[in-house]
Amino acid sequence: MDKENNIMLVGDIMLDFAGSTGLTDPDRAPRRYLWTDAFAVCNFLELYRRSHDETWLELARQLVDQVHHVLGRHRDDGQASGWLSGLDEQEGELHPTIGGLRIGKKLPERAPDEPADERLEWDRDGQYYHYLTKWMHALSCMTRVAGDVTYLRWGMELARTAHRAFRYAATPEGSPALQWKMSIDLKRPQVRSAGLHDPLDGLVTYSELRSLAGDFAVDGLPDLGEEIGELAAMCRGKSLATDDPLGIGGLLCDANWMELLVIKGDFQHLRLFRQVLDDSLASLESAGDGFLELPARYRLAFRELGLSIGLRGVANLARLVVEFQEDHDPDLLFELTPRIEALTPHLAMVPKIERFWREERNKGTEHWKEHRDINMVMLATSLAPEEFLQAG
């Protein structure tokens, strides 16, 4: 009964989201935000998988199309117009992601001659690498469910564009790293610091795209082998531990996708996989669960729900034991099993997080209202995460 109630709530949330953000309501101007929309695509696909109702699949298609036509083009209040790639209208329709995708922030980006303002930058538009990887994953899910390699091509073109634009030489020796935030046209960094998990997100997502390309065996797709090699080098020897709930959830999601790709034989970075499991556990133990006792006004729902979604992926990791028993090195199985078992007790946080944010009384804070779209969509993902947690 709980699962049935959950999926009914997910359906209600997503219909409200579709109407309130201008996806299905023609009287509303589209309000697109790349991170939220990536999760929303997966939620629509999950509703389609469970119901076989084509309406949900069509909503996923419409959302992808609207994201590309809004965030793949310059802002209406900017000096430039048309596709971010600079392609003409016809070519831009064929390659809508090849110029990247805007974040969807309310304020225009910082001008080249404008001084940086760290506080204001959070509300300014531009391009985020970790938002682009989430959209690549959503396009992978569309490919797998709809069986249309057009989405895969768009995801791989976006991967190649993002890697070239965000990559820079971080040391005098030329060691590569990734910028945190770039301008809308991808010509200048807006925030130079590197995201802790961006190289890992890129490595896992590009590996997912490459794995899916192998399944469909389509000619002419980008290979991404060089990019995957560089991202693996960026991850090597670096701690990924964090005390941020959303960051921990992201680590656990990456571990989940790594596991699925390892099982397929499409991810060979097993030392990194072990490290992600170790750093995830260390992060969970360091952060603790004391934040679950705080009142709503001191909490950010989407960050906690990101952790909940990642913890949902921990349940998938247990499958690794069964799969490896038949096909893989028993010594590796011996190393991974205790790591997975140590993560399992932390699953107890999931129902606590979900129950808290389902309560209407906890949705009256300014934090909730300011982030309502992302909060509701990620709550829906946590309640029904299977499509989001798939890979390849």
Rank of each mutant, 00 (worst) to 15 (best):
L186N: 05
L186T: 06
P189N: 09
P189A: 09
P189R: 07
Q190H: 09
Q190C: 09
Q190W: 04
V191F: 07
R192F: 13
R192M: 14
R192Y: 15
S193R: 15
S193Q: 15
A194Q: 12
A194S: 15
A194H: 07
G195T: 09
G195Y: 08
G195L: 11
L196S: 06
L196C: 05
H197Q: 10
D198F: 15
P199Q: 04
P199G: 10
L200Y: 05
L200W: 04
D201Y: 11
G202W: 04
L203M: 08
L203Y: 04
L203I: 03
V204C: 02
V204N: 00
T205W: 05
T205F: 08
Y206K: 00
S207W: 01
E208D: 11
E208P: 00
E208Y: 02
L209H: 00
L209V: 01
L209N: 01
L209C: 10
R210D: 00
R210L: 01
S211Q: 06
G214F: 02
D215V: 12
D215I: 06
F216Y: 14
F216H: 15
F216M: 07
A217G: 09
A217C: 08
G220K: 14
G220T: 08
P222W: 13
P222G: 11
D223E: 12
D223K: 11
L224P: 02
L224H: 06
G225W: 06
G225H: 06
E227D: 12
E227F: 02
I228Y: 09
I228S: 01
I228T: 00
I228G: 00
G229I: 07
E230D: 14
E230N: 03
L231K: 02
L231S: 04
A232W: 10
A232K: 05
A233G: 13
A233N: 11
M234Y: 02
C235G: 07
C235N: 07
C235K: 03
K238N: 12
S239A: 13
A241G: 06
A241P: 02
T242F: 10
D243Q: 15
D244L: 13
D244S: 14
P245R: 09
P245Y: 07
P245N: 12
L246S: 05
L246T: 03
L246E: 08
L246H: 09
G247I: 01
I248D: 00
I248N: 01
G249C: 05
G250H: 10
L252Q: 04
D254S: 11
A255Q: 09
A255I: 03
A255D: 05
N256F: 01
N256T: 15
W257C: 12
W257E: 13
M258V: 04
M258E: 08
M258T: 02
E259K: 10
E259M: 15
E259L: 15
L260K: 14
L260V: 04
L261E: 06
I263D: 03
K264N: 14
K264Q: 13
G265H: 03
D266M: 13
D266C: 15
F267S: 04
F267P: 03
Q268N: 12
Q268P: 13
H269Y: 15
L270N: 05
R271P: 04
R271W: 05
L272F: 07
L272H: 11
F273T: 05
F273G: 01
R274C: 10
Q275C: 00
Q275R: 05
V276K: 00
V276L: 00
V276S: 02
V276Q: 01
V276C: 01
L277N: 07
